[in-house]
Write a protein that binds this DNA or RNA. Sequence first.
DNA 1: ATGTTC
Length: 490
Amino acid sequence: MTEDARWRDHLEKAGPSLHRIKRHDAMLVDAMLVGDKAHINRHSEDRSPEQLVNTASLPGIVGNAWAMADWHFGYGFPIGGVVATDIEAGGVISPGGVGFDINCGVRMCTLDLEVKDIKDLKKFGRRLKGRIPAGPSGKGGVDLSETKMDSILSEGAKAAAEHGWGEHRDLIAMESNGLLETQERLVSERALKRGSLSLGTLGSGNHFLELQVVDQIVDKNAANAFGLREGQVTAMIHTGSRGLGHQVCSDHVDSLEKKFRRQGNMWHSDEWDFKIPDRQLAAAPFHSNEGQAYFEAMQAAGNYAFANRSALTQRLRDALRAHLGSDGDLEVLYDVCHNIAKVENHVVHNENCTCCVHRKGATRALGGDHAELASRFAGIGQPVLVPGDMGTASWVLAGPTKGTNAAFGSSCHGAGRALSRSQARKTIDAEQLQNELQAQGITVHANTPNVLSEEAPSAYKDVDEVIRLTAEAELARPVARLRPFCVIKG
DNA sequence: ATGTTC
């Protein structure tokens, strides 16, 4: 065993589908891995558990550092990571704990339709492809003047609705009502420029817009509350803050990393007098100027992402009206962030704590008695939207009926990659894959053949397995499984 | 994830 894999010496079972890495070396708290033995062994050759261990030494960390069941290697922090710091006790905020695609997230819409109600599905798919701009460029975005950009960054989905890129009634069906408070708009000119053309565009990689059909109801009570029934058509939009959020992250990662100098095998900040084991965990005390500058810019980028999912929903509504003569009674079920840091109150070791909860590839999962949740989710729990891959399934889960789960009210966010993009391109033939998916009744409109190969179901882990582990660890409970039939891919 | 190499 290498020095680097010391975490295995400290691993113990902590419950059903739950393992603990006991505090050792520079760790300030324990780290929790959601998964059974077999699941953890599948990570024997990647360094993501070490990344999780590293996060456990961040100043002000409280509770445990967590890795959700779909954890994998990321920039500094593992993707799937949940890290909470006590911001009244010098706790830090770290851009690497949020990720490059700030407020990447998922919106799910219910339609009062079954698949058979969509006549000439092939034609509808082509219409959607024509109206949903996809791919790395911002080509096809809405016309965003400087004034409108300001309102989007400060007011998120509400501003989008005011500009005609969303509906006001959708706001109550969004995490934080689609609005992250910002005092100042601290976003660089470069970030603004990158965002100027891409509002209302999907992006690339694992981002998508899918028409899905509810193929299995697991929790009838919750499904009723969520307005879901077997055979029903739903739409799922998975995208984030595009180049704008990426630039905000880059700006702050660059400036914060410069504040750390190597000292033995750690990195030290003279300014704040603390050490981190990996420079990519560069962080600032939440209440420092640097911490606040990042937080405000992150909020603004998060608002842009909410507005982006709103604008795409509006384009979907337009496409439905053009094809069906109505929008199919499309309603937003919920819209969640899975790359964000939030200030939240939690009880840690029986004491109230104002925490900065970093969720990087993790979804908030509020209990059904939480004040922020819309009343229709009372006694049920927050909808947790988990996008899978384009040939298998996505899932809707629910947070606890009341109270919070052990992971600061967090759950998983997806299937997680099994093959790297380059491995997938090398080994998966795009045309053959497209034919295979078509034979299963799944039409994929991909921007390029490479995207098809990279996003192949076999390039992903089994989302059903991630859901099973998440449920066994009692983080969230499965409500419904959704199967795609029409996929728009960047 | 990303104007996929400032």
